[in-house]
Amino acid sequence: MLNLIIDALAAGRVTEEVPGPRAGWAAAAVGRFDLASSAPEALRAAIELCPAEAIAVERSGGKAVAVIDDGRCVQCGLCAEGDAAAFKNVHEEPAMGRSAASLRRRFPLEGFEGASLGPDFALDAHDRVSREGARLAEVVLKRFRRSLHVRHLDAGGCNGCDWELNQLQAPQYDVQRFGVDFVASPRHADVLLVTGVMTRNLELALVRTLDAMPRPRLVVAMGACAISGGVFGTSYASRGGADRVVAVDGYLGGCPPRPWAMIRALRMVLE
């Protein structure tokens, strides 16, 4: 079996440098979606099609604003299909931020008449932003930057985010080189990384897992499901985003987020 090692050494390292947020995009790759057309019928069609209720038209102070919530968008691209589509794929990573609200991107609409459309995000005031991350002393953050142990919890997703997280260990990404490692026990973890919609049957398990983690600790929600429920939203079986149940320190949109974005999001919460 020594030949495995010899082959590997001969083939050489495959670890890649961290690309910039805009670099490394395949032409067809889905990313975030920006407003392409203010046409009301296009917007209406997009809102109707959107399986995750991520698009809305809000009226604030008399002005109409199109909102696309990267915390909900599952990057299905239905809103960007066809020549007269309201949105277009701009080949950039979905937004990340310290609150779910900060993932909503707003586009002023010119000459848009009529009432609000789509879901009312204002009603959606479940953002439970943790201040634990902000409160952490610089000394702790500094140590976390050099050693960050992650406990992953799938709160009920489709498993796509999990596989992407798993890919962080692929030699191309080699997340270990950043001092990040996945651990088996919540007792050893600094970050609780939540993916997937918060299902009813896992709510208590999430709370217990967080309780099992030693302070100081952080919670990061990755992927549309973990932020808002994504296509699964709220139902008899689920509560929507993880922040309905526990306070969250960082959010990263995407369905699923790509591995580089995940690495960047982990760094973001430590800044």
Partner: peptide
């Protein structure tokens, strides 16, 4: 081991960094 796996691997001093981090954490 990381080299054999065709990757860079953690810094040589990662062990110390992990220990230093654990010192500021809670005993459960």
């Amino acid at each position: 081991k990381a080299r054999f796996q065709r990757r860079v691997g953690p810094p040589l001093t990662q062990g110390y960094r992990d220990l230093a981090k654990l010192l500021v954490k809670e005993n459960l």
